[in-house]
Simulated assay, not measured.
Amino acid sequence: MSATALTDANATLEARLARFPARQIALAQRRTLSYREANGAEDAARDADNALPLVLLHGIGSGAASWVQQFEALGARRRVLAWDAPGYGESTPVAAASPAASDYASVLGEWLAALHIERCVLVGHSLGAIIAGAFAASHPERVAGLLLLSPAGGYGAAPAQVREARRDQRLAMLNELGPQGLADTRSANMLSEQASDEARAWVRWNMSRVIPHGYAQATHLLANADLAADLARFKGRANVAVGADDTITPPAACERLALAAGTPLQVVPRAGHAGYIEADAAYNAILDTFCRASAGPRSQ
């Protein structure tokens, strides 16, 4: 993709994103959380459809902006929100240098409370799945449905030397390359060979905007987390989906997490790790179907 074509693709996506501008909300202890929202549905229509809010959590190399296609497709019938995780965008980082999933889940709970969201459908992609799983395990009454897309399981159950090696390798790469270097060299790994140039440009755009300190904290989170353990604790409605061509969290790894969640694994053809970007129609259908199923009676 030429530099001119890349610039044009980014400009088009940024224009679409401008419909869902970044917002900030104050939390306790002078902390800020930034997020984006689509809320085009009238209150009466949402109530008639029993449409719960849909909350989207991004992965380690991304941000709230990555969900623009989901805002466009799903925001007409329900409230759709995506956060910039602590340490991303304008969101205040968590306090711990080497945080646990509970640190992020606590901020998630504060943010939802500040927005008066008592119950939602919660979606986590990659690292976001770790945070979503921790929140669902701790606050099952607030999660009508838990949908994990290409979930990262974390290395918390691995031997210490494995956790440290994985963590240190990623931190060294961040220090060597910086956000733009990460985007230039790593963004292609997020997609399948079938991905469009526009999808490649958007993944690169998002990755180039990560903040080093927040990315480093997220790297520690990945090393410390054990998503499977949290999924085993959550007894509510859950689903796991992965792209057939995902090489970062491949179907075999996601199959183990689906087993922990007690749900069959859904495999999406012709999609890589960032499937919701490159195969948005397929993923939007999965999201919409899951939201509708989650609108029923609470699971016991």
Rank of each mutant, 00 (worst) to 15 (best):
A244Q: 14
G236Y: 10
L108T: 02
A152E: 14
W83T: 08
T289Q: 15
R166S: 15
L257I: 14
A216N: 14
A225F: 06
A225W: 05
A113K: 10
R30N: 06
A45C: 03
R166A: 07
A253Y: 08
T185S: 05
A295W: 00
A101Y: 01
L259W: 05
S98F: 03
L146F: 00
A44R: 11
R78C: 07
G87C: 13
L127H: 10
A228L: 12
A51L: 02
A105R: 06
F71K: 03
N39S: 10
A100T: 04
S91C: 07
R77F: 06
L148N: 00
R23Y: 00
Q300H: 11
A279I: 15
A201G: 08
N224Y: 14
D103Q: 10
A113L: 03
H213M: 11
S138V: 06
A201D: 09
L33Y: 07
N10A: 12
A65E: 07
V162T: 05
A44F: 05
G156N: 08
I131K: 01
R19V: 01
Q69M: 15
G59S: 05
R200S: 10
A64H: 07
L33R: 07
I211E: 13
R170H: 02
I60C: 00
I130W: 05
G272N: 12
A38Q: 03
T12W: 04
Q70F: 02
G214L: 12
A201P: 15
S196L: 15
T185M: 04
G153Y: 00
A132F: 05
G243C: 08
V123N: 01
R200N: 10
D288I: 11
D47Y: 02
L222V: 06
I277E: 01
R46P: 07
R209V: 10
P251R: 00
A232W: 05
A258I: 06
D84F: 12
S196A: 05
G275F: 13
A132I: 03
T185Y: 01
F234G: 01
L257Q: 13
D8A: 15
L191D: 09
S208T: 14
A232F: 04
A73P: 12
E42A: 07
A44H: 06
A271Y: 02
G275R: 10
R186A: 10
P151L: 05
Q29F: 09
A45I: 07
R270L: 04
R163D: 05
Q29H: 13
A113Q: 14
G181W: 06
